[in-house]
Amino acid sequence: MKIAFYGSSLLSSYWNGAATYYRGIIRALAARGYRVTFYEPDVWDRQKNRDIDPPDWCEVVVYEGTLEALRRATDRAHDADIVVKTSGVGFEDDALLGAALGAARPGALKVFWDVDAPATLAEVRAGPDHPLRFALEEIHVVLTYGGGPPVVEGYRKLGARECIPIYNALDPQTHHPVPPEPRFAADLTFLGNRLPDREARVEQFFLDPAARLPGQKFLLGGSGWGDRPLPPNVGYIGHVPTRDHNALNVSAKAVLNINRESMAEIGFSPPTRVFEAAGAGACLITDAWPGLGLFLDPGEEVIPVRDGQDLAELLPGLTPERAREIGRKALHRVLAEHTYDRRAEEVDRIFRRLIDTRAAEVAA
C-alpha cells in the first residue's frame, strides 16, 4: 500500500522533535511492505541542518515553502491509498490539511496524525471556525503520539470518528548503548529546544537545581538557549544532532526528561527522549506525569520527580552503580515492549481494518 505522508521533516531534527518518531514509525511500516513518500517543506533552516540522508526505506520529497509548491506536492496525494497529514508541519498547516484531504482519491484512507495533541486540542477548542473542526468530518481516524484517554475523549467531543494513540517508542537500530564520550560527561544532562511552554519547567526542574548544587556538573543541549543566563555549572552545547544522542545519553550519570506543560498536565505522553535515553541504557529522571507507569516502572526503570527540590535532593545521593542498574532495567523493558516494530504492527492493523471498511462503503 502507498502512503502520502505530509509532515515537518524526516531528514532533519532541527527544531523538529518529531523526527525520531517519524523515522521509527515509517521505517517499521516499510518493513511491513508499505511504500511511503514523505513530503516536507523547506522551512526553518531544516534542510541546512539535516541529520540523515534520504533513506532507502522512504521516498522524501522536499518542496519549497510556497503555496504553489505546496499544491504541487499535495496533488500527488491522489496516487496514494492512505493520505496522512500531521500536526505542526510548520508551513501553512491549514492550507496543507485542506489540499491533502481534497486531493485524496475516492476510497483512500484519510488520517490526521497529531504529534502534539494537547496543544492542538486547546487551539481547536479556542477557535469555533478552526479548519480541523470541519476536516474531522472527512478524516477517518486521528492518530496521536500520546495523550491517552484524555486526548481520545477530547477528539471524540470534537467529532472525530476514531482517535487512537500510537505512542513514541525505540528504534534499536538508531538508539542503543555506545561508549561514553568525555565531551558529554556530566552529573545530569537535559536535551530540549527552548519553547514558550517548556521554559518555565526547565527553570524549575533543571536550572534551579543546578543553582542549588554548585558542585554538580549540568549539561544543556538544544536550540534557542544561547542568550539565556545560566548558572556557572551548566554547560551549553547547542543543537545536538541525532548521531550524537547515544553518546550524550550514556556519558552522563543521569539524563533528565521535562515534558512540555500541556503534555505533563494531560499525561500519557512520553516524548521521544524517554525512549532514546532508555534505549541507550541511560538512567532517566523525569518530571512526574499521569500514565508514566504504562511505559517504565517508577523507581525501578525510571526516577520521577515532582519538582526541582525533589531533583536537588535526589541527585547527590544517586550513585553511579544505581544509575547503571536503572538504565539496564529500562533498556530491557523498552526492547521487550516499546519498539517501533510493535507500534507499526498496531498501525498496520488499524490501517487494514479501516481500508476494508472504506472498500465496503465505496462498493455499496
Rank of each mutant, 00 (worst) to 15 (best):
T74N: 00
A119F: 09
W57V: 03
V83C: 00
V62C: 01
Y63P: 05
A117S: 15
C58P: 05
A108E: 02
D93S: 03
T120Q: 10
K110I: 10
E68S: 13
G98E: 05
L67C: 02
R76Q: 15
D94C: 04
V62G: 00
R133D: 13
F134R: 15
V84Y: 14
H130G: 04
L101M: 15
A119K: 13
W57C: 05
D94G: 05
P55L: 06
V60I: 08
R133K: 14
A100Q: 02
F91H: 02
E64A: 10
A80W: 01
V89E: 11
K110Y: 07
E64W: 01
A80N: 06
Y63M: 07
W57D: 03
G90W: 12
G127D: 15
F91Y: 14
L132H: 08
A95M: 12
G102K: 12
E68I: 09
E64R: 08
V61F: 10
R125Y: 09
A100N: 07
P55E: 02
T74A: 01
R125E: 14
L109A: 05
E59D: 13
A100P: 01
L109D: 08
A108V: 00
V60D: 04
V124R: 06
W113I: 02
T66K: 02
E68R: 14
T66D: 04
D114M: 12
A126K: 13
D94Y: 09
P118V: 02
G88F: 09
G102H: 13
V62D: 03
E59P: 03
V89L: 11
A108C: 04
E92C: 08
L97W: 09
V84C: 14
F112L: 04
K85G: 09
V89N: 04
D94M: 05
Y63V: 00
L67G: 00
T120E: 11
V89G: 11
P131H: 12
V83A: 01
L132R: 09
R105E: 13
H130N: 07
G107S: 05
P118G: 00
R133P: 10
R105Y: 12
G102P: 09
D129G: 14
R76C: 09
A104H: 03
G102S: 13
A99Y: 01
G127F: 14
A95V: 12
V84D: 12
P131C: 12
D79S: 13
T66P: 05
E68C: 02
V111Y: 11
R133S: 12
A77Y: 01
P106E: 06
R133E: 13
D75N: 13
A126C: 08
D93N: 12
